[in-house]
Design a protein around this nucleic acid. Structure first.
Ligand code: FES
Ligand code: FES
Lengths: 143, 143
DNA sequence: ACTTTACCAGACTTGTTAGTCTTAAATTAG
DNA sequence: CTAATTTAAGACTAACAAGTCTGGTAAAGT
């Protein structure tokens, strides 16, 4: 199912991109998010709580409450989210699963994967979620 | 823990590379493989059985029995193994987990990931396991 | 034939991730 | 103040992947 990131992480990325479209300080409820993004309600709730605890989101209770980004959208990258949910192990583990990934005793694809891993990292950090969200054409992100 | 492929798949790749070093027709026992590669015995047994059923390996019972490649080492690529164990979903799923991955409604990294995915595919098919195994310097693959 | 060695098949257990449910606490509107 | 709404917290269940165990079958050597 998932390619690299856990399901939790995928949901987190989708939700944060959604929040990045809102005006600064505008709150979005879990209900709206699950409705738009088709993510199980309570599961998403836990994910967002976790992101809030780490400061990536801020939350407010009560009517008119909800979640918003914890910092400006142009200071957040996809990597920040991945790091918070899945961690960075995928950046230094061997893609073939060998015990250690280093130039010492490289696996057959170590060099090649090293290049890909850098590009992957770049993909996650070279643009911020503000830019990304604005250019997004997916219908579930409109209005 | 694992980057892209399941643990089963990682073990399979490691084991097949080991078998690729052996002379044509020479049999290797699960015991030797688990000893060298530090893979749980019964778990590896199941994985190799599955590969044998799919024709990627051939097996022989009894003393002097074991597993060997089911076809010449220079006709097998890492992709063949991945395909047999994990399938090819990682080649067409959205890396951010969006429901469908296509140019129609691309996610923010669709184009970028498309390129990476092609390179990843190339990494898995451009060389055969015979070449790879011969160039391998990892100590556990020596004699 | 008998014994040993090794794969075969499938049930079983364990651990992790995904997903659900319930109760409490905070905030807003009337 | 009260009722409605929404997040917070944590226990709980379900599904899946990882790993183990047992009894069976085929081949080799004596
Ligand atoms: S050793 Fe395999 S990717 Fe580095
Ligand atoms: S839509 Fe995300 S990778 Fe294609």
């Amino acid at each position: 199912m998932s390619v690299i990131f856990s399901r939790q992480c995928e949901y987190a990325l989708q939700a944060v991109l959604y929040l990045a479209l809102k005006q600064n300080g505008e709150m979005t409820s879990i209900r709206e998010l699950t409705k738009k993004l088709k993510i199980p309600y309570h599961f998403l709730a836990k994910i967002l709580q976790s992101l809030a605890q780490k400061g990536l989101l801020s939350s407010l209770k009560g009517p008119t409450g909800g979640f918003s980004l914890g910092m400006p959208a142009d200071e957040i990258t996809l990597f920040h989210i991945v790091e918070a949910i899945d961690g960075v192990a995928f950046m230094h583990n061997c893609v073939l699963g060998f015990p250690d990934c280093s130039g010492e005793n490289p696996c057959p694809v170590h060099e090649r994967w090293g290049g890909l891993r850098e590009e992957l990292y770049s993909m996650l950090v070279s643009r911020n979620i503000g830019q990304m969200a604005r250019e997004l054409t997916k219908p579930e992100y409109k209005t």
